[in-house]
Amino acid sequence: MSGVSNTITNQEKFDRGQIEVDFITKSFDSDAGNILALDGINLEVVPQEFITLVGRSGCGKSTLLRCIGGLISPSTGTIKISGQVVTEPHPQIGYVFQQAVLLPWRTVEENVLLPFEVKGNPTDKEKHKVSEVLEIVGLSDYANHRPGELSGGMQQRVSVSRALVTEPSILLMDEPFGALDAQTREDMNIELLRIWEVAKTTIVFVTHDIGEALFLSDRVVLMSARPGKVHDIIEVNSPRPRTFDQVENDPAFWKMRQRIREALH
């Protein structure tokens, strides 16, 4: 679609966007002894898929995401990004955290430029990319504002821009809209799908909101807690664009919703 000058072709992105989680476990040491957070997780995410991890708090969905992102390493088992074993944060991954995590001393533009600055001196092309991404998320007018001047929704949009600016093949999102009000959250969901269609990335999205998961994803991975396991995987076959009304009221969605609810109990 329009506006995005890709430095990486979509085919290349497709080749890099695959995730294989191969029977991983993750345990943490604590005062109460060894806690098994993830127990034998198997999952394959195909390139350009939108997949959500749903489960109650404490089911290890964030832990799984952090393992995929290379922020922590699994105790046993391996994770591969397009065949390459993950041992540290992968350059092809963009990460969006629960909080926007913006640096208050940088303007919106400078915050989005950060991934390039961390690698070295940003080129003109990269600077141009920043304004393009800000254009896409509708924040061009706020490029020179500081995060403190923005609303929560806008801050999270800056955070999404920062993850997108390097054109990652995989976007990992850890309950990114959890702190937003319902209306803003729906707006962000619609916007995210629009971006996903343009950017052609694989998205792994953690949420505990069933409606959000059904609206967004191709597949919903249901996780159960203590120890964290994949309980069920639900294919959302409904074609896009979907509406929130549909997700709320359509019988097909009702069935899936029911299935998820029962599994979570």
Partner: peptide, 16 residues
């Protein structure tokens, strides 16, 4: 901590 984690995810060096 979240800011440090962001820098880790961005593969920032210690000096950066």
């Amino acid at each position: 901590q979240p800011q440090l984690e962001l820098f880790r995810a961005l593969r920032a060096s210690r000096i950066t």
